[in-house]
């Protein structure tokens, strides 16, 4: 018996640091969060007496459950937006730019905004989108509008514009990478066999860049679903996401309720990732 245990240990001891890390910083906090979500919360205190009161509050009060729907809606809009803008850029850099140097330069240009602080990037949108902001000035000078647009800043529109810009690079990067790895001869072979551009996109480029598309979607999804700073800043607190609920509740020391929102958010993110991974098995592809 002891010999076998020794064998097990010598064979598997390398798993220990990783497992310890995961248990300490992922599994244990998750269990703790679920546990705390059932604690009893009073105005000034929290007690480990189990109750479902926080859960009932979350799903009965519109201000909270609508945060869930808001999160999912904003996530979908931003995801579609980053793909609509990011994929063409990736196609241009990954397929049409043949020189490796130019490819790298363009990718670095796409990443440069990312070198500034997250908060700076959000706040920088204010002078762009405001009533007297750059966008309104340009549109008025170009005589496209006669009065400044007021729906740009401190609205959901402004928040979504900001988020799309901030997260665009997470789509451009992986998709460009996958596209640039496609052998140009393979695309030429498809054309040589008689396939038009549409067919080549659907049957060759789409499947071969799918791991990049899924990676990009996972990046954007995880980041957007957990957002709280951009809505707070650019929507003027008009849009409440799950992240904002958590921040507010933690801020007022409502740990049980914050845990409920945390569990809900974790479940949503987990479902989204599992769903995206069903599209392609990243381990098999790369």
């Amino acid at each position: 018996m002891s010999g076998q245990r020794g064998n097990w240990f010598t064979r598997h001891w390398q798993l220990i640091p990783g497992s310890a890390w995961m248990i300490l910083f992922l599994i244990a906090p998750l269990i703790m969060m679920i546990y705390v979500s059932f604690w009893t919360q009073t105005s000034f205190d929290i007690k480990p007496d189990l109750t479902t009161k926080s859960w009932q509050t979350f799903f009965s009060q519109p201000v909270y459950y609508s945060a869930l729907w808001n999160t999912i809606r904003v996530w979908l809009i931003v995801l579609v937006g980053t793909f609509v803008l990011g994929v063409p850029v990736a196609i241009f850099i990954g397929l049409f730019v043949r020189s490796n140097t130019v490819q790298t330069i363009l990718l670095v240009l796409a990443v440069i905004p990312f070198w500034t602080s997250f908060l700076v990037r959000i706040v920088a949108w204010k002078p762009m989108l405001g009533q007297n902001g750059a966008l309104n000035i340009i549109l008025m000078k170009a005589h496209i509008i006669s009065e400044p647009l007021s729906f740009l800043l401190y609205t959901e529109v402004g928040m979504i514009i900001g988020m799309i810009q901030i997260y665009l690079v997470f789509v451009v990067g992986p998709v460009t990478f996958m596209l640039s790895r496609i052998d140009p001869n393979v695309i030429e072979a498809a054309r040589d066999l008689g396939a038009g551009t549409g067919r080549i996109f659907k049957d060759i480029l789409l499947p071969l860049s799918r791991p990049g598309l899924v990676t990009g979607a996972i990046f954007v999804s995880v980041l957007v679903l957990g957002e709280f700073a951009t809505p707070a800043s650019l929507s003027g607190r008009k849009v409440n996401l799950l992240g904002n609920v958590i921040v507010t509740q933690v801020g007022s020391l409502k740990w049980a309720f914050a845990s409920v929102a945390g569990v809900v958010l974790t479940v949503v993110i987990a479902l989204v990732i599992v769903g995206l991974l069903r599209i392609t098995d990243l381990r098999k592809e790369v």
Binding site: D183, N185, V186, E188, A189, D192, L193, G194, I204, L208
Partner: peptide, 20 residues
């Protein structure tokens, strides 16, 4: 005339098979 309308078949040096 673009390649896909020429009905000329090219066998590539590296074969260029569709990997997927």
């Amino acid at each position: 005339v673009p390649a896909h309308l020429r009905n000329v078949g090219l066998v590539f040096q590296n074969f260029a098979l569709f990997p997927h």
